[in-house]
């Protein structure tokens, strides 16, 4: 039930991100979240899209190298200590986090949604579910 995230290779130059979002815009691709991991020369843009497969196809056709990767999206109460509770579970399960970013959208007012790229997404989902923490599915993301 992991959610598919799109990772896209971009050169780290003015206008490159815009060229890419232009392709998404032209094709009516709806994004839920975006983050960038960058180096001096290049960046990896990570996108949560309503329909990741449609997004992957239009980007590939436009010549972008991209890959679908599995991430875990966790619903976290928007109160002090909310994130801490989730991270504790990862610590107990010895799950390593590669990176985290947040989901945008109306839903995030009361409950924040955080996107985790972890060493073992299946173990993470199982542990979170056991602890009664909601993990979003692909359908949930599409409906946001």
């Amino acid at each position: 039930m992991a959610v598919k995230q799109l990772s896209i290779f971009l050169e780290n130059k003015p206008g490159k991100m815009n060229e890419m979002t232009e392709v998404l815009a032209e094709n009516g691709i709806d994004m839920r979240a975006l983050s960038v991991g960058e180096t001096e020369g290049f960046g990896i843009v990570r996108v949560i899209a309503a329909d990741p497969y449609a997004a992957a196809t239009v980007l590939k056709d436009a010549g972008y190298i991209n890959k679908l990767t599995s991430v875990v999206i966790v619903e976290i109460p928007n109160v002090p200590g909310g994130l801490n509770k989730v991270l504790k579970i990862f610590t107990e399960e010895k799950i390593n986090i590669e990176y985290i970013y947040a989901l945008s959208g109306e839903r995030t007012t009361e409950k924040a949604c955080m996107i985790f790229r972890v060493s073992d997404h299946r173990a993470a989902e199982a542990a979170l579910t056991r602890a009664g923490i909601k993990v979003l599915t692909q359908e949930d993301v599409a409906e946001l």
Binding site: G37, E38, F42, I44, K67
Partner: peptide, 18 residues
């Protein structure tokens, strides 16, 4: 030029190959 075969989601891995 980057190729689909050499691309991963992991910045560290790409940097290592570089």
């Amino acid at each position: 030029e980057m190729t689909p075969e050499m691309f991963t989601d992991n910045v560290a891995e790409i940097s290592k190959r570089q």
